[in-house]
Design a binder for these strands. Structure first.
Ligand SMILES: [Mn+2]
Ligand SMILES: [Mn+2]
Length: 570
DNA sequence: CATATTTCAG
DNA sequence: TTCACACACTCGC
DNA sequence: GAGTGTGTGTCTCTGAAATATGTC
């Protein structure tokens, strides 16, 4: 049986093939070798071709190990009856060919991951007893006590000299290469070999978007390196390594907008940790280097707290002259208001924000369930049903109407069969590259044809992944209510604002929507309601949507809930 | 011995 | 191994 | 009011096996 991919796209292997995982691995390896060879070093190319030339048994066993977690394995825990050769033979060959190291140095942590408590007790029991510790320690406590005196890594034989038949431990030698090809294939490190299986099981369905074999996530090796290096930095931060130690290893500015925004996010997080670790100057420096909105605001707030008002004022004024998103304008506005008196400048003109409709409900405290559900319970009637939809409804209507635009086969947007959405969805030029196509979909909103398009898409694309459609919360009844009650020109307003900044505007919608199908005024057939429990308050992006609703005449309000047994707040 | 958590497989 | 949201705590006015 | 940090549900599914941990 051939394991080559057939045709234009990588294929998922049938699960009745006991070596289905090997078939999938071969598919990825040959796809990368065919389409990304110029992004590989000579050594990497040779390694991949050596892999392809391994016998079925060793290749399958190596693949199993690559798919499992970690790089260290006990030979006695590798049991795969589907292999055509004994595991021991396959292992021996993999060691010979340099894919595995059969006597790796093991740290104490490695040892504790590889062996069970019962296996470790005989090894360290004596030593621990000599130190006066009880013999019944748990694994974590044992490791804690041993960490200091046994900090030196050593081979397994030196850890367990008494155990004549101690299990063999092997270490995978080229995990970095397998991660690299996975990254080049998927364009991210979040997806993996398991995507093939989930598709085959039918758990996940993807829109089949045609793409040319030249389509790929990376054009230059330096981009792959940059991605991998930033990923490492992120992992080190997550592990708790000091920001000052990680900062020197963050790649410098790049001219690729996608990698730039990933770098901006990394620097935002690095700055947060720096500040938490008391490194204020480092935080300022890192945030200054990040183009992320939140990084800029944090830089300014920190300067403010350090009483460097003139520095902050200068940066803020400079920033204000650029094109600001709603969120930026909101955050910057608050800062300027506070900074102005400190530097003796005139108070900035107050923005006149539209008033928001508000009302208060006093409800019995529910013994179970959230405040939103309590509000639904109270507000929902036969004639005016209320549904808890948050972001899902408007996003879904948009995703269904604009389905063909979202999955338009634009160069570079799709490059493997497992895309939830186009790779450039949150990039600056996403809409510009599809402007005409979006206008055509919006044109449908003026013709009443849109309802049928949305219904048809709902039925035809059922279950297929779409970045805007969360299928489990949608049903025919909800869809029909929404189509009946929300006027087309309201939908157009909502969708246009959504498109104006997808990343910032796809969330922040009110919790509830109330439908009043029989209302006479077509524009009064629904209302969106944000529920706020005691102690909760509107978030910035919720406020921005609510203000937008108010300006557009879209019915919305804020419902403040009080519990009727709560004396204090009466 | 019962229960929670982690890992793996498909 | 993220994202969106609620909730809890702090500070200065 | 504003900023910050934390917890929670959810993330792409389901079931089984291994093992850590707590209680008796
Ligand atoms: Mn909510
Ligand atoms: Mn709410």
């Amino acid at each position: 049986m051939t394991t080559e991919f057939t045709g234009q796209r990588p294929q998922t292997a049938n699960l009745e093939d006991p070596l289905y995982y090997l078939s999938n691995m071969d598919t990825i390896v040959s796809w990368v070798a065919d389409h990304h060879a110029d992004l590989l070093t000579d050594r990497e190319r040779n390694r991949l071709s050596a892999f392809a030339n391994l016998g079925t048994g060793p290749r399958a066993l190596l693949t199993r190990m690559v798919m499992r977690s970690g790089e260290l394995f006990r030979a006695d825990k590798l049991r795969y009856p589907e292999l055509p050769v004994p595991e021991a033979d396959a292992l021996k060959l993999l060691v010979q060919e340099g894919w595995l190291d059969n006597s790796p140095e093991l740290s104490l942590d490695d040892l504790f991951r590889l062996f069970t408590l019962a296996e470790l007790r005989p090894v360290f029991g004596g030593w621990l007893q000599q130190q006066g510790h009880p013999k019944t320690l748990g694994k974590a406590q044992m490791r804690e006590l041993l960490a200091e005196p046994f900090s030196e890594p050593r081979p397994l034989r030196d850890w367990m000299p008494d155990d004549g038949e101690a299990a063999q431990v092997v270490q995978l030698q080229d995990m970095a290469l397998f991660d690299r090809i996975r990254l080049m294939f998927f364009g991210n490190l979040r997806q993996s070999w398991t995507d093939f299986v989930l598709v085959e099981l039918g758990v996940q369905q993807f829109e089949p978007v045609p793409f040319t074999p030249e389509s790929r996530a990376f054009q230059h090796r330096s981009e792959v390196d940059c991605y991998l290096q930033m990923h490492q930095c992120r992992e080190r931060l997550d592990k708790g390594e000091p920001a000052a130690d990680v900062w020197p290893d963050v790649p410098g500015p790049v001219d690729n907008p996608w990698l730039t925004s990933r770098r901006d996010r990394l620097l935002l997080e690095l700055g947060r940790q720096a500040e938490r670790q008391g490194e204020q100057e480092l935080a300022l420096q890192v945030w200054a280097a990040s183009g992320h909105r939140e990084a800029r605001l944090k830089q300014l707030r920190l300067l403010e707290r350090m009483k460097r008002f003139d520095d902050a004022w200068a940066i803020a004024c400079q920033w204000q002259t650029t094109q600001l998103s709603d969120a930026e304008a909101q955050g910057l506005g608050r800062l300027l208001k506070r900074l102005a008196p400190k530097v003796g400048a005139d108070k900035p003109e107050p923005v006149d924000n539209p008033p928001l409709r508000e009302f208060t409900l006093t409800l019995p405290r529910p013994d179970t369930g959230t405040v939103e559900l309590a509000a639904v319970q109270h507000l929902s009637t036969e004639a005016a049903p209320v549904v808890y939809v948050e972001n899902t409804l408007i996003n879904a209507l948009f995703g269904l109407l604009c389905w063909p635009v979202i999955f338009k086969p634009i160069p570079g947007a799709f490059f493997h069969p497992f895309h939830i959405g186009p790779a450039d969805l949150t990039r600056e030029d996403f809409v510009a590259r599809r402007a005409q196509a979006f206008e055509e979909r919006f044109g449908l909103l003026k013709t009443h044809a849109y309802k049928q398009h949305i219904r048809d898409t709902f039925r035809n694309k059922q279950g297929i992944a779409n970045p805007f459609v969360f299928w489990p919360v949608l049903d025919e009844a909800l869809l029909e209510l929404a189509l009946h009650c929300i006027p087309a020109h309201h939908l157009e307003s909502l969708f246009r604002r959504l498109l104006h900044n997808i990343k910032e505007h796809r969330s922040g919608f009110p919790d509830l929507i109330r439908f009043v199908p029989e209302a006479e005024q077509p524009e009064q057939r629904y209302e969106m309601i944000e529920v706020k429990g005691p102690g909760d308050r509107l978030q910035d992006h919720q406020i921005r949507w609510l203000q937008f609703f108010a300006r557009q005449g879209i019915p919305a309000s804020v419902c403040y809930v009080r519990w009727d047994d709560d004396e204090a707040s009466v």
